[in-house]
Design a protein around this nucleic acid. Structure first.
Lengths: 343, 343
DNA sequence: TTGTAGGCGTTATCAG
DNA sequence: CTGATAACGCCTACAA
């Protein structure tokens, strides 16, 4: 107790706590306290203060794959960049629950309960156990999921606005003169995928181009499905641009590029390619036209939402805009701009 | 208060605290407690349990540059991989203290103090404020620094064995027949650098090759310093191999490679190059002969040491071996193996 | 084997 | 503006 040391008592709390609230403290006492603290090397015990304040300024981060997988590629690193920054600026430290997935000792069904030791928690990854999350939320524990959710479970989330982003890409293609556009997506009906598809159709509709399910090529095995033959088929039927969904593995994008190369096609000239997301890091081709997912900003937004929840408020806008990325894989269609467009 | 919930009270502490000590608890009550805790999602408050002079199974991680810098290149990610795994297997969760460096709001002198919330803490980065660390250590708070330290401040650390690793590389060169070997290092006398230099000399001495400071080329500005002209100078004076220190930026290694290319030299044939560390990720040349820093293992070792400290024990061996990396940038010297070696 | 009491170092609430 | 006093939630004797 620095109180014993110097001359004051609870005042120490006010002085060191930096509470400029209602009360004002004489410069004199303030100095006395500060001096004593300095002399005795006194520092408030965070455990005690957090206990008393009933808040520990900790935000939990729950990822349902190792937070730091050996391969950076598969990590949430980009999100964490934003999470860390925003958490810092909001005065929170982060608790990483280890072994959330690694099947560690405490990886039982109730691993999520550990989250309660923080003021709130962020959940990353698709495989979050909905049941457990529900319990947390029902108990009034602040939780924010990083990634859009369809379930009407009241779970707060923050996600990228794939609908608008995809629409923007399509709008761009149409503006260049493309009319016959195909969407390739992997067969996994998660929001990230369905949102892109919706944006794709919306972009066409908004541009007055008829569309329908026949424009969507859903493939389970891109490697085998996207062959040079299929490409030529599309070209023959008038297709001038292909839009590809981005996924974890970028399977479709890779396969498509390989097929284009194998077919000896000249990418922007004979066929335009757009990628609804970022290219894989090892991609050495030209910058694909498409959009970037603002992962750091998503992380930051998630923390902001969580902080709001923790503070008793309501999070605001859950959607974060993606930035359109003009690339080098899209150009006007080969035949020039169709007459229909010019009229 | 799971106590109100179930039927017991303080027993909860015993059960959840996993204290198999003197007392034995009826399987029955144990189940009751565990059941209730589970049902209610009860988790002991870390602040409270720590305040009560116990432990909360939290390990703090303090990095003195942003833990997640925007550029993955500069991050502690590889260490964190090991830290997370080992922490998980030792039953600890991790607390990342944010804004350690970002100059955030709480970046004041007492930022480190937050560490006391955890059972112990890991410190990464060279710029750790020694003064503050001292206080923690003096107070008996378990701290482990990731990276070797010279200061005799009693601060526990875990680091890579650069001395042996560098020696091994040199030994390898000598075995191939090299005698005139030059070491290039940047001008920054941190342990990571001086250790490599020591290993370099030791390797030569052990092989019976005379050495001295004149073999070391210390350069502040590799770009300007490592010119094709200088290379030719070295070659003319009989140098057949160059050993380069690895640094954050890999400045020397890049500059050297550029100079070699510019001078039109054939790398392993006319001149052998070894790198005391890992090449930068964007390096597209042949795999450099040298050694890899076992970052994940270092992270794990640091956690192990910290866990030992927290448990009241003493950490063991602080040095972690680096793995020799046979590469494609070293070969026998051009003149063949000198007669002196063959005799 | 289980319940009771005291205290860890702060903050918060209220009187002085 | 400052000094008491009561929580905060948990752990550790100690008593029942």
């Amino acid at each position: 107790m620095a109180r014993l040391a110097g001359v004051s008592q609870t005042t120490v709390s006010l002085v060191l706590g930096g509470k400029a609230d209602g009360v004002a403290i004489s410069v004199e006492t303030r100095q006395k306290v500060l001096g004593a603290a300095e002399r005795l090397g006194y520092v408030p015990d965070p455990a005690a203060s957090r206990l008393a304040a009933a808040r520990n300024n900790l935000l939990g981060v729950f990822s349902f794959t190792s937070t730091f997988p050996t391969d950076v590629q598969h990590s949430y690193y980009p999100f964490l960049v934003g999470v860390e920054q925003e958490a810092a600026s909001q005065g929170f430290d982060l608790v990483l629950f280890t072994g959330s997935s690694t099947g560690g000792a405490r990886a039982g069904a109730h691993a999520l309960n550990r989250a309660r030791l923080a003021d709130g928690c962020l959940v990353l990854g698709r495989h979050a156990p909905t049941e457990e999350l529900r319990r947390l939320v029902d108990d009034g524990f602040p939780v924010v999921h990083l990634g859009r959710r369809d379930d009407p479970d009241g779970l707060a989330w923050v996600g990228a606005d794939y609908v608008n982003a995809a629409r923007e890409v399509v709008t761009n293609l149409v503006a260049l003169g493309h009319r016959e556009i195909v969407l390739i997506c992997e067969d996994d009906p998660v929001p990230a995928s369905t949102d892109r598809e919706r944006g794709f159709h919306e972009g066409l509709v908004a541009a007055g181009v008829p569309t329908g399910p026949e424009r969507v090529h859903r493939c389970a095995d891109p490697e085998r499905d996207l062959t040079p033959a299929r490409l030529r088929e599309w070209l023959a039927s008038g297709v001038t641009a292909i839009v590809v969904e981005e996924t974890d593995t970028s399977g479709a994008w890779r396969a498509l590029n390989a097929a284009v190369a194998e077919a000896g096609l000249d990418c922007p000239r004979e066929l335009s390619l757009a990628l609804l997301g970022s290219p894989p890091p090892d991609d050495d081709g030209p910058v694909p036209t498409g959009f970037d997912i603002p992962r750091a900003r998503l992380g930051a937004a998630a923390v902001r939402a969580l902080a709001a929840l923790v503070g008793g408020g309501r999070p605001d806008e859950p959607l974060v805009e993606c930035a359109f990325r003009p690339g080098a894989t899209v150009a006007a269609p080969p035949g020039g701009i169709p007459a229909a467009v010019l009229r």
